[in-house]
Amino acid sequence: MNSRKLKMVVASLALIAAPMAMADESGEDLYKTYCWQCHGMLANGMGVNIVDMSVQPRDHSDSKEMSARSDEELFTAIKDGGRAIDKSVLMPPWGGVLSDDEIHSLVRYLRELCKCGK
């Protein structure tokens, strides 16, 4: 490959890589950052915030409860919050913080946590 071609390849790689670097956080890292605080480090609904909460966060490791939810329902709960699915306002809407792609990664990660699919 001559050097001009190489430069072009490098330049186009940079174009692809730049937006990816910003959005490519894993479901696991997103969960640790945004969800641990209430759902807990063990994903059992026992986060550091729950002591004075009137409704307990969902236990994401409970495969029976979690398998009763479709991926679409989980997506809506995360994006639009508890109120959107007739649940507690304590489950916040994350649509203003996370992209749809990131929410899809979270739904996939929830399926790993509960070892259940739907």
């Binding site: 640790k32 950052t33 641990w36 605080q37 807990g40 480090m41 063990l42 026992m46 986060g47 550091v48 729950i50 002591v51």
Partner: peptide, 19 residues
């Protein structure tokens, strides 16, 4: 109460995570 990134300053407790 849990510092800058809370994830660095908590651990699982007997019930909920603790600081």
């Amino acid at each position: 109460p849990t510092g800058m990134f809370y994830g660095n300053h908590i651990k699982p407790g007997t019930d909920e995570d603790v600081i």
